[in-house]
């Protein structure tokens, strides 16, 4: 009987008007545009959830200060790149009337082997994020390593991006080619 009945999306109270079969409901709710946004600040256990227009206020009032720069091109200079443990580096880039989070995360996979993941997220909806691409480049002539991809929305979270390596990924050996005095410069361009 249940499979023949349509049930409302669990985010009805946030504005979603869809009704779905039990089989379709979980998948829709995972992607529902009305699902509240989670705190996008990486490396915290923050359980905040709210509407998109409250995210910036939450970030600035409840978390460590995040440096923001204006412009489509920036050099994200991550310092103390060899520090041990699970580490993140975060900054904000403001351009095209939006704010973008630039995130670099390091994970110690096993003794002596570290992986770094770098990517860009829009503080905006998935539809808005679809309009932007980003390019990240490590440069130390004659070597150069670049990654280009669609900007993700903070609505998509970061776990899948890292799990699928859908970002600029490099390891301990690669970083030695590009780091200078323990700092790594990543050229970031949003278009």
């Amino acid at each position: 009987v249940a499979s023949s009945v349509l049930f409302p999306c669990k985010f009805t109270s946030f504005g979603c008007g869809l009704t779905l079969s039990p089989a379709e409901k979980p998948e829709h709710e995972e992607l529902c545009e009305f699902r509240p946004y989670s705190c996008p600040c990486p490396g915290t256990c923050c359980h905040w959830q709210g509407q998109l227009n409250a995210v910036m206020h939450h970030l600035t009032s409840h978390h460590r200060p995040i440096t923001t720069v204006q412009g489509e091109d920036v050099i994200f200079l991550a310092t103390n790149i060899h520090i041990t443990g699970a580490i993140d580096w975060v900054m904000m880039q403001a351009c095209f009337g939006h704010h973008f989070l630039l995130i670099l995360q390091k994970m110690d996979k096993y003794e002596g082997y570290r992986q770094y993941f770098a990517f860009v997220q829009l503080i905006g909806t998935r539809n808005e994020a679809d309009k932007f691409n980003y390019r990240m480049e490590l440069n130390s002539p004659p070597r150069r390593m670049a990654w280009e991809a669609r900007v993700r929305s903070i609505h998509e979270g970061i776990a899948a991006t890292i799990r699928n390596s859908d970002c600029l990924v490099f390891d301990t050996d690669i970083i030695e080619f590009f780091a200078v005095s323990g700092s790594l410069g990543i050229n970031v361009t949003i278009s």
Binding site: G43, T67, D73, V74, F76, I87, M91, Q105, G185
Partner: peptide, 24 residues
Amino acid sequence: RTYRMPKEVRVEPHKFAAELIHRL
């Protein structure tokens, strides 16, 4: 044609909480 050097921003590291690592 003018070329504007992109601004360089120093970003300090931040240690993760263990809970996040487990979620990943």
